[in-house]
Each structure stands twice: as structure tokens, then as C-alpha cells.
């Protein structure tokens, strides 16, 4: 029995050995850099928490924080709204239609964020097709500014986040027994009552999961706000990049990056107490 246990342990030893390369890479090339960010945020230019004090005293830092949270919150709201409609229609559709719809969701998901942001610049610009159409139809007198402002950032970000919302919500809705809705209907509930009192409450875990996922991904966005905001809509990530690339204020830059990371991990931790987080990322 003892030798069988030892044999079992040594066999696991061999398996730990094959886990090691990935784990070492992650430790040295991922966690060391993150640790470096945390360390720099409390040592540059001199040891102490004065960088974090800027969160409470610097108006430009606070403005970036408020902008970031506002845009992430609005993005989350619209991504959930649009995502819910699509996920609901998918849940109700036949298997064949479902597959078509899934392709429609995955297609933009896998086209690079850079390419999609560029496409929005081209579409929404003052010389772009959308403005040409609006002018031609007489809906507006002159081209509207749809890009290089907050509207552009929101359009681009919602577009990127809806697929995340759909996939998470759909995974949740797939587990719901729709027979419950049918039962409510046969007991005399109207279509809307059956939805609001039976189906909707069952999708709350999905809404919480999808909402948190979209919100934390939105918090750290860099490429889309930088391109579609035209430098006018400064979210934290872009603010950090400016500190590092232009003004070389490493202390301030790493402090904001560390704050961002802590906020994201904090949200994930809170979420992990409610649902299995690993499944959010497709596990």
C-alpha cells in the first residue's frame, strides 16, 4: 500500500515536471513584470505612497479615472442590452439558425480590434459613407462628428464587447429549462409576464457574469479609445501610455497601471465568489 502510494506520488512528480516549463515561463515573463510595475509604483521617484496620493489630489488623474469608469459603464450597459437580445433569439432559434447566428457573433470576435477600429474611422469619418448617406438623404445639413469624440469611442467599444456578452449570456441561457416558460404560459401568464417573472430572473447569473467581464475588459482598453477618441477621450490605459512615452513619469504611469490591475483583479475576485470565473473565459 505504502509503495503504491509512493509510486503514485512519483508518477505525479513526472507530471509536475511537464507542467513546469509553462509555469516557469509564466512566473519569469509574466509575474515578474507585473511585480515590477507594483514595485516601481511605490519606489519611483522615491520610496513611499506619494504616487497613490495623486489619485486623491491630481485633477487630471481623477478626470481620466472618471472618464474610464463612465465609458466602461455605458459600454457595459449597451453590450448587455444588445447581447441579451441576440442571446435570447439564439436560445429560441432552431439548431441550424443558431449556428448561423453564432458565426455572426464569432466573425467580428476574431477580426483584430485594430482593423475594426480602423473600419469605424473610415465608416464614421466626415467623408465616410455614413455621413455621405445622411447628407444625401437630407437628414442632416452637414456631416456630423461621429468619430474623434466620445460617441466614436462608445460605438467602437460596444461593437467589440457585444460578442463577449452574447457568448456569456448564451452559455447561461442554454442551461435554462424553457419548459418553465411554457408552464407559466399555460398557467395564464402573458408572454411578457412569463419572460419577466420566469426567464429573466433565471438569467441574472449570466447578466452578472457578462456584465463583470465586459466591464473589466473595458476598463483596460487602449487601442480603440486612442484611435476613435482622437486624443480627446483619455481613458486610463492611454493616460498611462502618455505618461511613459511622452512625459517619462514612470511613478505616475505604474501607479495608474497598478490601480487598474488591482481594480480588475478585485472585480474578478468578487465575481469568483458568485460564479465559476474560469468558465467565463471559455473553460
Amino acid at each position: 500500500m505504502l509503495s503504491a502510494n509512493r509510486q503514485e506520488a512519483s508518477r505525479h512528480g513526472a507530471y509536475w515536471l511537464i507542467v513546469l516549463p509553462a509555469l516557469l515561463m509564466l512566473a519569469l515573463l509574466y509575474f515578474v513584470p507585473l511585480g515590477n510595475v507594483l514595485l516601481t509604483s511605490v519606489t519611483d521617484p522615491k520610496p513611499g505612497l506619494q504616487n497613490y496620493g495623486l489619485l486623491f489630489t491630481s485633477t487630471s488623474v481623477q478626470k481620466a479615472l472618471v472618464t474610464t469608469v463612465r465609458i466602461a459603464a455605458i459600454t457595459t450597459f449597451f453590450a448587455l442590452l444588445l447581447g441579451y437580445v441576440v442571446a435570447y433569439a439564439m436560445r429560441a432559434a432552431s439548431t441550424r439558425t443558431q449556428r448561423f447566428m453564432l458565426v455572426g457573433v464569432l466573425l467580428p470576435f476574431w477580426i483584430s480590434v485594430l482593423v475594426r477600429s480602423f473600419a469605424w474611422i473610415a465608416l464614421l469619418g466626415t467623408q465616410g459613407p455614413l455621413n455621405s448617406a445622411l447628407v444625401a438623404w437630407g437628414l442632416v445639413d452637414e456631416p456630423v462628428a461621429l468619430v474623434r469624440n466620445e460617441t466614436g469611442v462608445l460605438i467602437g467599444m460596444v461593437h467589440i464587447m457585444v460578442p463577449y456578452a452574447v457568448l456569456t449570456l448564451y452559455a447561461n441561457m442554454r442551461g435554462i429549462d424553457v419548459g418553465l416558460v411554457a408552464a407559466a404560459r399555460s398557467l395564464g401568464a402573458s408572454r411578457f409576464q412569463a419572460f419577466r417573472m420566469v426567464f429573466l430572473p433565471l438569467t441574472v447569473p449570466g447578466l452578472i457574469g457578462a456584465g463583470t467581464l465586459v466591464f473589466i475588459l473595458s476598463l483596460g482598453f487602449y487601442v480603440t479609445p486612442a484611435l476613435l477618441g482622437g486624443g480627446k477621450v483619455l481613458m486610463i490605459a492611454e493616460y498611462v501610455a502618455v505618461q511613459i512615452n511622452d512625459t517619462l513619469r514612470w511613478g505616475l504611469g505604474t501607479m495608474l497601471a497598478a490601480t487598474l490591475m488591482i481594480a480588475v483583479l478585485g472585480c474578478l475576485w468578487a465575481l469568483s465568489r458568485v460564479i465559476d470565473v474560469k468558465r467565463l473565459f471559455g473553460a
Binding site: P33, L34, G35, N36, V37, V240, A257, L260, M261, K278
Partner: peptide
């Protein structure tokens, strides 16, 4: 396995900053 998927959640800008210093 949970640690392994962390790079999907932490904002890339944070990682990029740390990696640049390294």
C-alpha cells in the same frame, strides 16, 4: 490552471509596462 488564464484578464497595458522595464 487558474493562474494560466490570468493573462487574459489583466489589462495588456499593465503587462506591457512591466515587460518594457524587464
Amino acid at each position: 490552471r487558474g493562474l494560466m488564464i490570468l493573462p487574459m484578464a489583466v489589462p495588456t497595458i499593465v503587462y506591457a509596462l512591466g515587460l518594457y522595464r524587464l
